[in-house]
Amino acid sequence: MSKHRVSRRQFLNYTLTGVGGFMAAGMLMPMVRFAVDPVLKASASGDFIPTPQKISEITEEPTRVDFSFEQKDAWYTSEVTNTAWVYKDENGEIVALSPVCKHLGCVVDWNTDKANQNRFYCPCHGGLYEKDGTNVPGTPPIAKLDVYPTQEKDGFLLLGKAKPREEA
């Protein structure tokens, strides 16, 4: 037996506070959940997508990395394949460039134009970019190629959403 005797009044007080507290929590929790929901959503959209490219196999020569993910267009979900040109710069940092030409959106290729070695070439209107994605003056594009933010996980490369760069 406990030494502390609980009177009838105290017992009722405790139970009422307890039950009342549960009920209040039941009402408040969903409200709080709704209020902070936008914050939770925002963190989910900054997802990094895994690619089949091993970090250790990235060289100084830009290589094509294809990665696919699911894209939702209203109610229609489809598997989309994206491409990135990935290489290591002089400092050993990984650079992942978007292959979409900043002119009219064609897909650029590395080192395919014989007159322009070691540059990205756009077959549509002859746009050229240096290895770091800078547009060559005198060709149609007016901005640098977009870059993907990169991450590493278990030795594999993860890519985020391509971002445009500021004008140099």
């Binding site: 030409c101 002119h103 009219l104 959106g105 064609c106 897909v107 756009c122 077959p123 549509c124 209107h125």
Partner: peptide, 8 residues
């Protein structure tokens, strides 16, 4: 095909 040559 369209994606590749979108601009032209």
């Amino acid at each position: 095909l369209e994606r590749q040559f979108k601009g032209r």
